[in-house]
Amino acid sequence: MTDQNDKLEKLMKQSLNGDQRAYAALLQETSRLLRPFLSRRLSFSNEADDLLQEILVSIHKARHTYDGNRPYKPWAYAIARFRLQDYLRAHYSDQLRQALDFDEMEESLPENVTETGLSYESISAEVNKLPEKQANILQLMHQEGYTAREVAERMGMNESAVKVAAHRAYKILRGKLER
């Protein structure tokens, strides 16, 4: 472990002196080090890969804040944690916003349907015209009473993906029914 630390610090010192090969080796080692850290905290491997790229760019931008006289790993992990928190914050606030939109849609849709005098059958017909996945989601949620999470489990999807698909379906339906 100490050997690996020493190696990383040595590589970073060489990198700061402009050694491009040492820098490439350091970044490769860093990504090997951080990949399991990110994979444990994120559900999808593509998310981990995207974030890892962001972290490597951040390490590149902040490399002047490392002087080579203190352990490298805590420095790199501090940047990784910072970017991970940023990513999760953005991800959850996005999910929350989508969930709020979804709730608003759920509240407003029955009112509009009643006002325009549309029947259950006409809505069902419109639902059936939607892309198959969206139609299935709406049928499961509104005819069979499943929650978004249950639908996600049944269809092998992510819960937020179900909400997004439902949200898009509502948008299409709303457009059609308002015409």
Binding site: S15, N17, G18, Q20, Y23, Q53, H64, T65
Partner: peptide, 24 residues
């Protein structure tokens, strides 16, 4: 993974000598 390799190669290419920040 290929993306990471590409990025590493690109960052390494851009890397010139850097003066470390002074001690806090």
């Amino acid at each position: 993974m290929a993306n990471i390799d590409e990025l590493v190669a690109k960052l390494a290419q851009d890397a010139s000598a850097v003066k470390p920040a002074p001690h806090p």
